[in-house]
Amino acid sequence: MTVLVTGARGGVGRRVLDRLHTAGHTVRASSRTPAELSVPAGVDVRRLDLNSPDTFEAALHGVVKVFLYAEAEGAKEFFAAAHGAGVRHIVLLSSSTVEGPDAAADPLARHHAVVEDALSASALPSTVLRPGAFAGNALGWSHAIRAGQPVELPYPDAHTAPVHEDDIADVAAAALTGETLIGRTLTLTGPRSLTFREQLAVLAELLGREIPVRELTREQAVEGMGRFMPAPVLTSLLAQWAAAVGKPAGTTGTVRDVTGRPGRTFRQWAGENLGAFAAQD
């Protein structure tokens, strides 16, 4: 059984690849730029670009299962090619944003919903993973924290339930190597709701020093963050954060149900990644 892992350089994709390879499964890694992939010995590497259907055949040849990052462009064509190649199971990394009340009007949610809809229409057996906020999003604060500068945030009291990327990978690997999760849609969260301010407090405690927070107005956030992300995406994020102020995020027991152990906490993630936040010499 060959498993194709797309987005093999990503924080989740690489973890999935490593788990499957360690367990002795035949794994194929794919990327738009395969020359930049560094994979374990014995892992086949192929080019796959969902915007280039001519890359589908070679990437899918002999593949039985696929771990797929959601990419709206080319999704319908990819699923048709996968069906034709004999793929028997797709595990899709989607997003919990599709469950929001305004998902149809939300650019982030719509991106993932388009892929989910195309997968459903394809009739391919599938498992859909809908994680919420990644714990690794906190790395966006690392530059300021290393430099001893305030972390600038709009809506610092917005809640999320950050999920550890290792938990997402564990659930994905279980889905790819078993049959019980086929046909299911799983929402993944961390075990506890935390505000951004509370997440920073965890990092401050582990670092043993204060991390000041400077709250930005929405206008300041649009000006500053708009240099790094498209306006529709930024608008979506700011709306989500504004709606989450003072409202604890819901949590699920999916990680425990699938793996038999509790989900990893944000504190655990912070401890494992503390070096990224250590003060500069």
Rank of each mutant, 00 (worst) to 15 (best):
E77Y: 00
V5I: 12
G10P: 10
V12S: 01
G100E: 09
R130D: 12
V63G: 02
L153C: 09
L119D: 02
I90E: 03
N137D: 14
A138L: 15
L234I: 07
L50Y: 02
V66Y: 01
P162K: 02
L50T: 09
E215L: 07
D18L: 09
T195P: 13
R197A: 14
L206R: 15
S126K: 12
D257W: 07
V151M: 04
S38Q: 13
D106H: 15
L274W: 03
H83P: 04
A242Y: 00
T251W: 04
A72Y: 12
A41W: 03
V151W: 03
L274N: 06
R214I: 01
L17H: 06
A8V: 00
A144C: 11
G246V: 00
I182L: 08
V66M: 03
A249Y: 06
D167K: 04
A85Y: 08
I145H: 00
L20D: 05
L274Q: 10
G190V: 13
K76V: 01
E223G: 12
L200I: 05
P230N: 09
S30T: 09
V115D: 01
R15P: 11
A231L: 13
L17T: 07
V12P: 01
G132Y: 00
P125T: 06
F67E: 01
T187F: 00
R192C: 07
G24D: 11
T97M: 04
E165M: 14
E198F: 11
A118N: 14
V16S: 01
H83I: 02
T127F: 02
P156F: 02
R261C: 15
V163G: 14
M225T: 09
G250R: 15
G86L: 15
A59N: 05
F79E: 00
G11S: 12
V5D: 02
A239C: 09
